[in-house]
Nucleic acid binder design. Structure first.
Length: 566
RNA sequence: GCAGCAGUAGCUUAGCUGGAUAGAGCACUCGGCUACGAACCGAGAGGUCGGGGAUUCGAAUUCCUCCUGCUGCACCA
């Protein structure tokens, strides 16, 4: 598509002695469309040219030559040059785009670069609760969007299937296993054991020591421990698959910490070679004092591995296996220091610089209960399955009220209910904490997933009546404000996707989809699409079609399914 | 104590590498379905952008400082 901003930058460059690339970055989009579609603030040149912004603006205004087909008007307003693009041209660009490409906004800008995304990573033997939702949903959205932009993406589910917690589980099972029927209700039974053993550990230091011992035995391949661990893992995975079938989650690898653990000795050897590995209080550490960080612990006093060293081993493994250009870790911000330490220590592994520079932690805020933090150990978690079921039920109720004749009610309720939950989690800046509130979460009005789905359904039902004819779109019927607002947004779609990957921030896309839905709803409310004038109708049907396409493509990229009716 | 992140309307929040009158949604008040779907649209009310300094033509945005909250800081992951 034509880059209007670039054309404007070029025209300005011809009037002043400046590079058009610099000028390009100065051009902005005014908040108020009264001030044009693009604006150039001349203040930026005042110092360099030693003239007042007003004079510069007038001088540029006098000299500038613009293709009327691209920019139809320029105005000087208090030091700004305001550019009004040719409305018909904008519409035509979009018509062409939609008639040439079916997958709108798709590109190969990623150039086949390898991206690995480590996300979701639930812990075995613990319930999949609403705290795991964000990592899963953010990771999945990024996966989809990177892929859409031509990157070669791998989703890694780095399962928490290792560590002292399993020593605890094993100890708990040893003590009370006969009281439980794990196969029957795996997650709840395992959680029960976990809570119980943790309480015992708090009371009795010897039990905690026994748990640590169990983990050491597990690492050393003790058959009893390994068998038990395998059982916990398998039962948990079955549960997780159920959840992923509902909310999505694309994984190319399920290699968890246990898979990585055997590769730890290689890391220790490399760190030894670097000469930086030190003994401290019986444990092995890397000092990071010069980086203003506490030390990175590599090996515990009893010789077992740490989370950090396993992450280092994973880096080594992923560099070799995936040859990544970028490696993203989607976790809560509780782990920022951990990853800073690990990434710093990774420099000692002798890897190519590319692999070090590609490491990036993508932190997000936590979901808190009104009473504070959720804790599996305390048993104060809201299980994701419960939340989803509640949401689906709520959707079902609303369908009964509003559209009782609807076919496939269950399927639609699933899409709407789950869409609401996913969208809610992706609609705000990821770093913000979220206080869990059933009512806020299950609200289906306003800035929500169902609003986007509803708007899509409206476009869909018009298209169903009229069909689309992409060949005969007369853009002169799309010059009004309501239509232009939509077209400008659609024009931005590709740019929005790029912004998402620049910042690893899916909410940019969520917010954008709200804008699109809103713009279309405004149009819809004051304009009839199906009118007698055949040409006007075709043009408006096109606008409707294009809006629907953007909404569906965008929502799908976020991992949200769209119903055709609701 | 040290470090990081956050503080925008009653609540939830947007605001791109500084730009023109700080945008939304929820809730509240009022208005709009004999027009293609009212899960919608419009209007109203609601703001010392945590406080104070600094930088400059110009700051919610950058810097400093203080306040508040959250998180992390060695054998959890």
């Amino acid at each position: 598509m034509l880059d209007f901003k670039k054309e404007i930058a070029k025209s300005i460059a011809n009037t002043v002695e400046l590079d058009s690339c610099d000028l390009y970055s100065f051009i902005e989009v005014p908040k108020d469309s009264e001030n044009g579609d693009y604006a150039f603030p001349c203040f930026k040149l005042a110092k360099e040219l030693k003239k007042s912004p007003m004079i510069i603006a007038n001088e540029i205004m006098e000299k500038i030559e613009l293709d009327n087909e691209i920019v139809e008007k320029v105005e000087v307003v208090s030091g700004y040059l305001n550019f009004f693009i040719n409305k018909a041209r904008l519409a035509q660009e979009i018509v062409n785009e939609f008639s040439e490409n079916d997958e709108i906004g798709k590109s190969d800008i990623g150039n086949g670069k390898n991206i690995v995304i480590d996300y979701s990573h639930p812990n075995i033997a613990k319930p999949f609760h609403i705290g795991h939702l964000r990592s899963t949903v953010i990771g999945q959205a990024l996966y989809n969007i990177y892929e859409y932009l031509g990157y070669n993406v791998k989703g890694l589910n780095y399962l928490g299937d290792y560590g002292t917690q399993f020593g605890k589980m094993i100890e708990g099972y040893k003590l009370w296993g006969s009281e439980y029927d794990i196969e029957k209700d795996p997650i709840n039974q395992m959680m029960d054991i976990y809570v119980r053993i943790n309480n015992l550990c708090k009371e009795d230091e010897n039990v905690l020591e026994a748990c640590r011992d169990n983990f050491k035995k597990l690492e050393d391949g003790d058959s009893y421990c390994v068998e038990l661990w395998k059982k916990f893992r398998e039962l948990s995975l079955n549960e997780f698959h159920k959840i992923y079938n509902i909310i999505g989650g694309r994984f190319d690898s399920w290699d968890g910490e246990a898979y990585i653990a055997p590769k730890v000795p290689e890391v220790i050897e490399l760190l030894n070679k670097s000469g930086k590995l030190k003994e401290s209080e019986g444990a092995k550490i890397i000092e990071l004092e010069d980086k203003n960080m506490p030390p990175c612990m590599i090996e515990k006093t009893n010789g077992s591995s740490t989370y950090a060293v396993r992450d280092l081993a994973a880096i080594l493994y992923r560099a070799k296996t995936y040859d990544y250009d970028k490696s993203l870790y989607i976790t809560s911000y509780e782990q920022v220091l951990h990853f800073k330490q690990v990434f710093e220590t990774a420099k000692l592994l002798g890897l190519d610089e590319k692999y070090i520079n590609g490491l990036e932690h993508v932190p997000f805020g936590m979901i808190l209960l009104p009473t504070g933090k959720m804790s599996t150990r305390e048993g104060t978690v809201v299980k994701l399955e419960d939340l989803l079921n509640e949401s689906i039920q709520r959707a079902q109720k609303i369908i009964e009220e509003k559209n009782p004749e609807l076919e496939n009610k269950e399927e639609v309720a699933r899409k709407v209910g789950i869409g609401a939950v996913i969208f809610n989690d992706l609609s705000n800046n990821r770093i913000k904490d979220e206080i869990f509130d059933w009512n806020a979460l299950l609200n289906f009005q306003g800035e929500t997933g169902p609003y986007i789905q509803y708007t899509y359904v409206r476009t869909k039902s018009i298209i169903e009546k009229t069909g689309v004819n992409l060949k005969n779109v007369f853009v002169e019927f799309l010059l009004d404000n309501d239509s232009q607002n939509i077209l400008k947004l659609i024009y931005n779609f590709r740019n929005i996707l790029i912004q998402v990957t620049d910042k690893n921030e899916p909410s940019i896309l969520s917010r954008y989809l709200l804008d699109v839905a809103k713009a279309y709803s405004v149009f819809y409310n004051s304009n009839k699409v199906i009118v007698d004038d055949e040409n006007m109708k075709n043009a408006r049907v096109f606008l409707t079609y294009a809006t629907g396409k953007i909404l569906k493509t965008g929502a799908n990229l976020l991992g949200i399914q769209m119903p055709d009716k609701m």
